[in-house]
Design a protein around this nucleic acid. Structure first.
Lengths: 338, 338
DNA sequence: ATGAAAGCGCTAACAG
DNA sequence: CTGTTAGCGCTTTCAT
């Protein structure tokens, strides 16, 4: 059995309350330095380790927060766990990671509801791109639920959020493609749960295309994976050629990049290619991938700040911020027409 | 405040114990179907949610396990959280993710020790490539510590483990390079905490090279990142050319791949390139990357099984298994000399 | 400056 | 079949 405060108290013939006061640091000033020393010493000698479950029961706080991820297989999301776990660690928090694989539909995967109902009590939640789940959580916990910060997307108006400005990025990407001389620009998108982002990007694409007097052509892949995009782009090309391709995200763009290489189309020369997110691999492709950079670390840092602020002031007004993405021009567009 | 079993009991004018029996399902057969119904109904109506902290305190089990990651920024490790979180979820477990950024040294990062001492009690631990931390944990918890399963590497002989057979993979890769006609094969490695793996791979490289009567050349990059490898390989090339490059892992290989492209060296023709891990990006590079495939999902699945077996039979004999990697030949070597 | 006692929400004997 | 009691390990009044 693990050693408890009671064990220390008995050994020193004092009360458990005193031990608690010393070990928790709450009684600073009221404890005789004699007993303080002896308690500290005994704790060390006996290998005492606080039982956080017991602390949690009495305090109502667990010092644990949850990270909800929509699709942690995608490199864009894959960075978040490490960043947030470190941020939390420095503040004395641990992180429960819970990610469903995205199934592209509107509902949660089987078993998810039950799972969430029975979830471990956390002090806060950071929810990346899973508005449905946020909605459900708030429904089940009308009062007393943990504060939530939504990241990446902000579909739910009733919680703090830090998202990207999807319009600005797409606008910049499209203007870039037009400026370098693309005439037939295709938008390659994909089914996913965060349909608002998808729809928003498509809308901007369509607006810019029509403002430029070009013909629009939108193609929807079955999912957001690289493998699907790789095959999809071949079909797309065989149906009708194009000279510009704007993809919903970098994974789709990387799949397309490879798919075009497979059929002998030279990315960067024959087709200008733009992705979205700026995951690490974008810079390592040959040719490297022009993309809309969305700074994940900055987003996580701000999300964590927001959560801490919400803990400090539960009644403070809602914060809903947006980060401006920037276009990173690389070889997949810079050599076009040359 | 959240609704408790006591609230339900009072409302129904029964005891909390009865409520517990119904809700926990422990009293099946001993509860009159009348009260059962009423309790279930009241729980639903009142929005009852079990308090897992309280359950944890009394049972001594949290139904939470920890995943320790050495370097979760690397794509190879990035898959593990999602895979294990899903595996756990299906068994009713939640996962605490705790990853330090690897600092290449032999000790834990600042604050880590304190953090671990005060860590949340978990029922089990899966530790990926962090032998030091495992050692420390076992030291602080000589008795009553949670069972540990080490994955990816098996440097600690006293816990269950599922690792890769590093020899077999490197042997196959080296034989392949020799067979396609490489004469000057360099091994590009990097400083990292899991020095055993690094040393093992290097040793096999050296053995095969000398058996083939070739000259060995080992180069050590400052860390395992793509960015470092990208620059490192340029220096390497300028010092002396080579026609084969075996990298410690795919990230290093991808960095080298891009670095060689930067200076006009054609990967696949001028230099045959082999990585290790088979992360997704390997197949999407142009030319695609030959690599030693180490099946992460299979490893995670087996690790989870081992943990469950250990829970079922704490006294069962240690299990220390190895997965055989396979060489995946792709364009970065298949076109060599053609 | 310290002890005694109550209680966080739940489970598990032990009665009946 | 159900109620009473005790207790998991810790914090926190309220006394002294």
């Amino acid at each position: 059995m693990a050693v408890t405060m009671m064990d220390i108290a008995k050994r020193l013939e004092i009360s458990a309350a005193t031990v608690s006061r010393v070990l928790s640091g709450k009684g600073t000033g009221y404890i005789s330095s004699g007993t303080r020393e002896r308690v500290l010493e005994a704790a060390r000698a006996m290998g005492y380790r606080p039982n956080r479950v017991a602390q949690g029961l009495v305090s109502g706080k667990t010092k644990v927060f949850a990270l909800w991820l929509r699709n942690s297989d995608a490199p864009f999301y894959a960075k978040m766990p490490r960043v947030l776990a470190e941020l939390g660690m420095h503040a004395g928090y641990e992180m429960i990671l819970s990610g469903y694989r995205d199934r592209g539909g509107e509902t949660l995967p089987p078993g998810a509801e039950e799972y969430d109902i029975n979830a471990w009590p956390v002090d806060g939640i950071i929810a990346a791109d899973c508005p449905k789940r946020v909605e459900q959580y708030r429904q089940w916990n009308p009062v007393g639920g943990a504060p939530i910060v939504m990241v990446a997307t902000d579909e739910n108006p009733e919680v703090d959020s830090i998202a990207f400005d999807h319009e600005v990025g797409v606008e910049a990407a499209m203007q870039h493609l037009i400026k370098i001389g693309c005439q037939r620009i295709v938008h390659l998108t994909a089914w996913c749960s965060v349909s608002a982002v998808q729809r928003c990007r498509q809308k901007v694409y369509e607006r810019v295309i029509s403002e430029a007097g070009l013909a629009k052509r939108v193609s929807v892949a079955a999912d957001e994976t690289r493998a699907t995009a790789r095959e999809h782009v071949k079909k797309l090309w065989s149906e009708a050629k194009f000279d510009g391709l704007f993809c919903i995200n970098d994974d789709v763009a990387i799949g397309a990049h490879r798919g075009l290489a497979d059929i002998g189309v030279t990315v960067g020369k024959d087709v200008a290619l733009v992705g979205c997110d700026d995951i690490e691999t974008a810079a390592y492709m040959t040719p490297s991938l022009t993309t809309i950079q969305q700074p994940v670390e900055a987003m996580c840092t701000r999300a964590w700040e927001m959560l801490e602020q919400r803990w400090a002031e539960p009644k403070a007004p809602l914060q809903q911020e947006r980060i401006m993405p920037t276009l990173v021009v690389r070889e997949s567009t810079s050599q076009f027409g040359k």
